Simulated scan of single mutants.
Amino acid sequence: MQSELYLLNCWYGLAWSTELDDGALLARKVLGNSLVVFRDKEGRPAALRDRCSHRMAPLSMGKLKDGVVECAYHGMQYDGSGRCVHYPFGPVPARAVVEHYAVVERDKMIWIWPGNPELADSSLIPDYHFHNNDDAEDDWVVFGYTNVKADYRLEIDNLMDLSHAEYLHATSFGGRGFITNHGRYQVRDLGNEIHSNWWMPAIDLVHPGTRQPIGVQADHFLDMRWNAPSNMRLQVGFLPQGVHADREDAPRDDLPGQFSAHIITPEDEGSCHYFWSADRPKGSVGFVGGMDKEMGRKIFKVAFEIEDKPMLEAVAANMHKGFWEEKPLILPNDVGGIRARRRLAKLIREEQEPAGAEAVSSEALIQMTPSIS
């Protein structure tokens, strides 16, 4: 997997764990490469290049038999390491091997490391532990997948600037004026982790169904966390008005809130996989407080598939050059997304530089891209 568009030595979301249930053989293209994903006989996830070593037949057209993939063309069987373990017509040829990738299952997601497998470090996988609360009493988590015909970095831009919720999501969970009337924007830059946050004090809580005020005020926050290359987590909080006012400019991960995952994986240069989730912890207030699981699934699906997806695909279709060549207007609430773009470009450049090549400094990189104005 080689492209100037992608960071390779990092973790990308490959599939929700449930996509491999019941002996499934999943075909998925990642970073322009076709893969077949499955569970081996021990139930561990595996990912191979979707191409038999013999006649290049897609292995995903075959079947999974006792944790090994059988090619539908000539019956050659491959285990999770990509090694051919059975050739029906004689001894297994020495070159009967398929490329395999480092994969890890964590927090109900199958993660893939498309670069050097010897560098794969599972401790670098971002934390999405709230996914594991799905079976807890009175809690729920919904999971979804959307294929978006747009460059993956446009999806990052969209998620790092949540001001669009007031307009694009007016029929789902936006349009209440919280951001436009009360919002204070803040970016926290922690290197390969960037936070793009909104703090909205003294907003009037509304009923999720009628959208009418219920006579209670709260301090509201939206905290989006970006981990390189394209893994994001949103925390949405509604706090008793004034009780946590001192946390406006401080980390809020420990405060009560509703979480959602936004894990973006490039499919190829013109499309991406969007894995999304949302939870409702016990005792939630605000937007999801009065929802059951099916209502939650429906409204998040509307937001991400009916509202976000068509807009991002229209933006992509309206671009005839690269992002910076289009000379977009940069607004103050784009700071988080622009920093993520620059940081990702820097990481990709550093990864692809030959050993001993002169590094491009952060200052030089910033000078190479338009300033925020």
Rank of each mutant, 00 (worst) to 15 (best):
M1H: 10
L7Q: 06
N9Y: 02
Y12C: 13
A15Y: 14
K29R: 12
N33V: 15
S34R: 03
D40W: 14
D50Y: 12
D50I: 07
L64H: 10
L64S: 10
V69D: 08
E70S: 02
H74G: 11
Q77L: 05
Q77E: 12
S81K: 12
S81A: 02
Y87V: 03
P88T: 02
V92M: 07
V97Q: 08
V98C: 11
Y101Q: 06
A102Q: 12
K108V: 12
M109S: 07
W113Y: 04
G115N: 11
A120T: 13
D121Q: 10
D121P: 15
S123E: 10
L124A: 06
H131Q: 14
N133D: 13
N133E: 10
D134R: 14
D139R: 10
D139E: 13
W140N: 04
V141F: 13
V142C: 09
G144V: 12
G144N: 04
T146P: 02
K149H: 13
R153N: 08
I156C: 06
I156V: 14
D161T: 09
H164L: 06
H164Q: 10
A165Y: 07
E166K: 11
T171K: 15
N181G: 03
G183C: 04
R184V: 09
V187A: 08
D189K: 01
G191K: 03
E193C: 06
I194Y: 12
S196C: 03
S196M: 03
W198R: 00
W199Q: 02
M200I: 05
I203K: 00
L205K: 12
T210N: 04
P213Q: 07
I214H: 08
Q217G: 07
H220T: 05
L222H: 07
L222Q: 09
M224E: 01
M232W: 00
F238P: 01
P240D: 04
P240I: 11
Q241V: 14
G242C: 05
D246Y: 07
R252Y: 10
G257H: 14
I263S: 14
P266N: 01
P266C: 09
G270W: 00
C272E: 09
H273K: 03
Y274G: 06
D279C: 13
P281Q: 04
E294R: 12
G296T: 02
M311A: 15
L312D: 02
A314T: 08
A317G: 14
N318L: 06
M319P: 13
N333S: 12
R339K: 15
A340E: 12
R341S: 09
R342V: 06
R343C: 03
L344W: 14
L347W: 04
I348S: 02
R349P: 01
R349D: 13
Q352R: 15
A355K: 15
V360M: 15
A364Q: 08
L365I: 07
M368A: 13
T369D: 08
S371W: 10
